[in-house]
Computed example of a mutant assay.
Amino acid sequence: MLGAWAAHADVKRGSVTNLPLPRYVSMKAAEGNVRRGPSLTHRIDWVFKRRGMPLQVTAEYGNWRRVQDRDGAGGWVHYALLSGVRTVLIESEMLPVYARPDPTAPVNAHFESGVVARLGTCSLDWCRITAGGYRGWTLKSNLWGVDPSEIRE
Rank of each mutant, 00 (worst) to 15 (best):
1 M>L: 10
2 L>C: 06
2 L>P: 01
3 G>A: 08
3 G>P: 06
5 W>N: 08
5 W>G: 02
6 A>W: 06
6 A>C: 11
7 A>R: 15
7 A>D: 03
8 H>L: 09
9 A>V: 07
10 D>F: 07
10 D>S: 15
11 V>G: 01
11 V>I: 12
12 K>N: 01
12 K>R: 08
12 K>A: 06
14 G>M: 04
16 V>Q: 04
17 T>A: 02
18 N>M: 10
19 L>W: 03
19 L>S: 03
22 P>W: 04
23 R>F: 04
26 S>R: 05
26 S>P: 07
26 S>G: 09
28 K>C: 05
30 A>F: 13
35 R>Q: 07
36 R>E: 15
41 T>K: 12
44 I>M: 08
44 I>H: 01
48 F>Q: 04
48 F>Y: 12
50 R>C: 06
52 G>S: 00
57 V>A: 09
60 E>F: 06
62 G>R: 12
65 R>M: 08
66 R>I: 02
67 V>R: 05
67 V>F: 06
69 D>K: 08
70 R>S: 12
70 R>C: 09
73 A>H: 09
73 A>N: 13
76 W>E: 00
77 V>G: 05
80 A>L: 11
82 L>N: 08
84 G>E: 06
87 T>A: 04
95 L>C: 04
96 P>N: 06
97 V>R: 00
99 A>K: 13
99 A>M: 10
100 R>S: 14
103 P>K: 15
105 A>N: 08
106 P>R: 14
106 P>G: 13
107 V>D: 00
109 A>P: 07
110 H>I: 06
111 F>K: 04
111 F>L: 15
112 E>D: 11
113 S>F: 08
114 G>K: 01
115 V>W: 04
116 V>M: 02
119 L>M: 15
120 G>A: 15
121 T>M: 12
123 S>A: 12
125 D>Q: 13
127 C>V: 01
127 C>G: 09
127 C>E: 06
129 I>P: 06
131 A>F: 07
135 R>P: 01
135 R>D: 12
137 W>R: 05
139 L>T: 00
141 S>T: 05
145 G>S: 06
146 V>Y: 04
146 V>Q: 05
152 R>H: 14
153 E>Y: 11
